[in-house]
Structure formats: structure tokens, C-alpha cells
Design a protein around this nucleic acid. Structure first.
Lengths: 257, 257
DNA sequence: CGAGGGGTTGACGTTGTTCAATGAGCGTGG
DNA sequence: CCACGCTCATTGAACAACGTCAACCCCTCG
């Protein structure tokens, strides 16, 4: 995999603020946010970068001074074992503020790489500090946002630790569908699911061959359809029941603070 | 399991501030903290509660207005499946600020219960808000602290997702040992590890019987000794190498902000 | 002294892995 | 244009890891 810093050039010459409506949609599922407040965040975004599939956004152990917002494409957070086996901890979709945790942590405990071609915008940490100083309310929103990642980690632990076979895969599909819905990336029961079987396995602790067999079973059971980049959920209730999917852990219901 | 609120009574009549030196030791591994600052936190702590093994600190879905600091004893965060299977996401030891994530999240996505008899002190969220307003530096320290939990979740995902057999158990032992060391709860290579084999299994996605067999193998290999509440690590390097344990994810090295 | 929790062990069944072979699709260079 | 190499998906058979069922032990506590 190529290094992000080595290969990428800014895709915009600056000037026009990037479209962060997907990001704001996620925030607004949880907090009220005025148009002005949204513009203030957008104004802080630096250049937009284009990444190829496989490019790293950040490397484990790196100390970085900015966080990235995914505008388009899918990415993943992961760690690797000495043997080169990879465990994906979270799939990142458009609208995700993908390495916000690097703001408090500074040094990263894991890597992030693009799963598909991506478009990302950077937000320097000093701009975040400034935003928070000017509007202390943002601190709470950002902290909350990082805690939702932790909540998702816990649900994944439950998934890998207690569920098996089709249920484990079904749960991943339910999650990505639910999150995609928030940012307007679903079409009826269909949604983009551009992970290879190998990558699905890296999410779930399975080999690619086993993922293949379980996907086949899920299709034969009539719960899902589609083999490629797009998955169609034929029976949402069945899929959710099989995997005991309860979206509460995504914290997508409105609240105020 | 009994409900914490139903059964517990304050163990202190208030007045004397509880001993939070273990908590402060953990903070000071990462941030410099003056004696005065430590006292300010201690002053905000409310009554100290005693819990029996099995008592809940908080229930999944609950909305609570305080966070708890563990003074003595072991606790665990976990979720349950419909079938009653339990997945432990983190083992909490003395000095841990155990449900600080409830401060930004408000509603909890998981439960926390005592694994052994525990002594905990409560800190109301409004006191936290006050502390942060008076000393904005605390916001960063607390945010950081919750992000370390997320980092630990990720390492557990790697552990359950990619390691197997003895390595999985060895990794858990290395983590608890390393964290115990910070709060002065180790004695040479020995440390308190009061989890039953069932509970170890709930951490790692194994059955109690399989944990039993793997522990036996770890003992036969000469890496650890002791069967009961106290484990002795006979060969730290061997244990760390077997489980590819790298403590970086615990963020216990000094830094400043 | 009886119940209940924790630990130990064996035989056997299931889930998931490994090894291996095959084919489809796609971009690249000759 | 086709040949080639690459990634990804598919499938089968043998095998290992782990779970299930069951019996038994020890200890503690009421």
C-alpha cells in the first residue's frame, strides 16, 4: 500500500469550501446545529485530498496535527499482527470524522486506510482548538462523537465475541446500512457495501473462504441479494433479528445538550 | 445480580475525602498534575459506596448523572445477548474512572458490574462540568482518558479477532498486569487476577471449559503459575512474545499538554 | 449437611481454517 | 487486438480449534 503523504496532491486549489452536508447530517441526528455553526466548521477545512484504494490516511504510531473528514468513499481503521493479519475495527463511510480521536490522543494506536477511492478534507488540530475556544459547545459535540466510536467498538466486541456464522455478517450489514441511511446513501433496501470478502473477514475475524460460504447462505436464506459493490436487503426484520441488531449503540436518536 | 441502587448504602458519612491516589497515579503517567489539582478533584467526590460481587454500577440504557471511581476491587463493562451470553469489554481495576463515558453520552450502551467486592466513589456530572469550567485543562485530560478506553477496545478487538488459544489469554494477563503495576498492585511478577474462568471466557469469547484447558497449557509451558485469585508471571518476555503484547495502546508513557 | 459456585477432565460434535484448484473480470503492455 | 498478470470470488476435502454434554471434585456458606 502506498503512503498517503508520498502520493497525494491537493485536489482543490483552496477557495471553495467542500461539501460537508453528510457530516452535518450525522451531527444533527444528535445535536441541533445552526446553519452558521455548520459554516464555521466548513470554513476551517483545508485542502481536499483524493486517495486511491489502499492509501493510508494515517499510520499506527504516527503523531499528526490534523483530523480528516471523509467526503466520499469508504475507509477503515485497523491494526496488524506481526504475521500481517489485519483486524478492522471500524468501517468509515462518507460524513465520518475519521480520526478525531487523534486530537486528544496525539499519537495513534492504529492505522486508517482507504478501502475505495476517497475524497477527504483535513481539519488542523489548532483550528479545532480555536473552534472549541470560541464555542465551548463544540467540545461536547466532538467528545460525544468520539465516544460513539467507542460504543461501536463495544458492539463489535459483542459481535465477534458472541455471535457466529451468518449473524456476525448480518450485523455488519445492518450497521453499515443504518449509518448509510443517515447520510442519504441508501436506495430503498439497497446500499453500497464495497468491501471485498477478504475485508469483511478482517472486520469479523473470519477467513475470506468462510465469509464466502456465509454470504452464500445469507443469499440462499433470502435475507440479502447482490454479490458486488451493492447489497440489497430483502428482509430487514429477518436480518436484524438474526443478528440481534439494535441500533441504540449508534446514538442516532435526537437529543439536546 | 442485585441492583446497586436497591441494595447499597453510603459507606461513609461524608467528610473525609476518599483516597484517590491510584486514580491520580494513572493520570500522572500521562499528564503533570499538581497536588492542588488532585485535591480539587478529590473534593468533588461524593459518598463512597461498597458493592458486593455481582452488584451493578450502571445498567445498559440507563441515564445517569454521575460517574464512578473505583477505589478498591475489580469491575467489568459488558453487554448481554438475548440468550444471556455476556461479553466483557473491559476489566476495571482500582484507580479507574469507570463510567466517565456516561458524561458525554448520558445514556449508556452497556452495563457495569462489580466482579469482586468493590469500593467506589461517585462524582456528579455537574461537578465535572464545574471542574472543566474552572480549569479547561481538565476537559482535555478527561477526554483523553475516555479515548484510552476506546484504544483498549480496539486492542481487544485485535485480540479476539486474530489471536487464539493461549495467546488470547496471555494478552489479557499482560494487560491487567501492566495496568496493575501503575497503581502499585503488583508484587514482583505476581498480581491479583480475581476473574473466574467463566469471566475470563466472557472477556475473550471462549467457553469456561476452553479457558480451563488453555490455562492448564499456559501453566504447563511454564509461563504462569497460580490457579486462584493471584497469578504469578514466571516468564514475562515469553508471555508478551506469545501474545504480541505491546503496551503502547495503554498510553502509559508520559506526555504533556 | 445440603446447595451452589467454581474448577477439572473426557468423549464427541460443530464451526471455522487450511490447502488447493478453478474461473471471472479488469487493467496493462506488447 | 490479445496475452498476461492481478485481484476477487467460488468450491471441495481434510483438518484443527473450539463448543457441548456430562461427570466429578473441592470448597464455602447458610
Amino acid at each position: 500500500m502506498r503512503n498517503f503523504l508520498d502520493t497525494q496532491l491537493p485536489a482543490t486549489a483552496g477557495g471553495a469550501a467542500p461539501d460537508i452536508s453528510k457530516f452535518l447530517a450525522t451531527i444533527r441526528k444528535r445535536f441541533s446545529l445552526s446553519e452558521h455553526e455548520g459554516d464555521m466548521i466548513a470554513a476551517q477545512l483545508q485542502d481536499v485530498f483524493e486517495l486511491k484504494a489502499g492509501d493510508y490516511l494515517v499510520h499506527e504510531g504516527e503523531k499528526i496535527g490534523y483530523s480528516s473528514l471523509i467526503l466520499e468513499g469508504f475507509a477503515a481503521r485497523f491494526k496488524e499482527t506481526a504475521a500481517g493479519e489485519r483486524q478492522i475495527m471500524e468501517v468509515q463511510i462518507p460524513g465520518d470524522f475519521v480520526d478525531l480521536h487523534s486530537y486528544p490522543l496525539e499519537v495513534l494506536d492504529h492505522s486508517i486506510a482507504a478501502l475505495t477511492p476517497c475524497k477527504v478534507a483535513r481539519l488542523p488540530h489548532r483550528a479545532l482548538t480555536q473552534l472549541i475556544e470560541d464555542h465551548p459547545r463544540f467540545a461536547r459535540i466532538l467528545w460525544f462523537s468520539t465516544m460513539v466510536d467507542a460504543s461501536m467498538h463495544r458492539e463489535w466486541l459483542l459481535n465477534i465475541g458472541t455471535r457466529n456464522g451468518m449473524a456476525r455478517i448480518a450485523h455488519l450489514m445492518c450497521e453499515i446500512y443504518s449509518r448509510s441511511e443517515v447520510v442519504g446513501l441508501t436506495d430503498g433496501g439497497s446500499f453500497r457495501f464495497p468491501l471485498s470478502q477478504t475485508q469483511i473477514g478482517e472486520c469479523l475475524g473470519y477467513t475470506q473462504m468462510h465469509v464466502n460460504r456465509m454470504l452464500k447462505k445469507l443469499r440462499q436464506t433470502g435475507l440479502i441479494a447482490g454479490t458486488g459493490q451493492v447489497v440489497e436487503i430483502l428482509d430487514w426484520d429477518g436480518l436484524a433479528q438474526l443478528s440481534e441488531f439494535d441500533p441504540a449503540y449508534l446514538y442516532l436518536t435526537g437529543r439536546e445538550s
